[in-house]
């Protein structure tokens, strides 16, 4: 194995990664922005938030399938074991949150007795029985896990840039598909 692996993620994995990175980051900003607003922004942001969140859930299913069919390229052989573990753990945490965030959003609206409307007329069925206690717990979980997602994202992005700018070991380009040679 060469120092700088030339292996890349499959095209499907790369497209999904960057598309979903943009969507998830957008969702985090929309989420904190809308709950801090009383203007008409609150209304239109929430109308983007719900369908975009469900779209992330659907793409996460596709992405997990792609990942299980096409194992990712190996990390550089000389990467310290701790960093390897951190990379692996953070990737699975990101996967878990990609599923958890939209499912909790959906479940909390169900528990609150709200109709889960994705548009003027498109409605999802409830996935949780109506319960104020469950609503409160899920609503707080939605907010705290969003913070965890944001922090994990920051660590993940820093690590990617560390690989790309400092180690220059091919990890970043395995996901961008761009090789600076």
């Amino acid at each position: 194995m060469n120092y700088s692996s030339s292996a890349q993620f499959t095209l499907a994995a790369r497209v999904l990664h960057w598309l979903m990175a943009a969507m998830i980051l957008t969702m985090l900003f929309i989420g904190v922005g809308m709950v801090a607003s009383v203007s008409e922004r609150h209304d239109w942001l929430i109308r983007i938030h719900k369908p975009l969140g469900i779209a992330i859930l659907i793409l996460a299913v596709v992405r997990l399938a792609v990942r299980l069919r096409h194992p990712p390229p190996p990390l550089p052989v000389d990467l310290p074991p701790l960093q390897k573990v951190a990379a692996l753990a953070s990737h699975w945490l990101l996967y878990a949150l990609m599923f958890a965030m939209p499912l909790i959003g959906w479940a909390m609206l169900s528990a609150g007795g709200y109709p889960v409307m994705l548009s003027e007329s498109l409605r999802l069925p409830p996935i949780f029985p109506v319960s104020p206690v469950a609503f409160a717990v899920l609503r707080h979980a939605h907010a705290w896990l969003a913070v965890l997602l944001f922090l994990t994202f920051l660590a993940h992005m820093s690590a990617a840039l560390y690989h790309g700018l400092i180690r220059r070991d091919g990890v970043l380009s395995s996901m961008t598909g761009i090789r600076l040679r």
Partner: peptide, 16 residues
Amino acid sequence: PARSAAYATSYLRRTS
């Protein structure tokens, strides 16, 4: 929109 946002906050506090 202000009512919608404020009622959601009131609702979260009282259900919590």
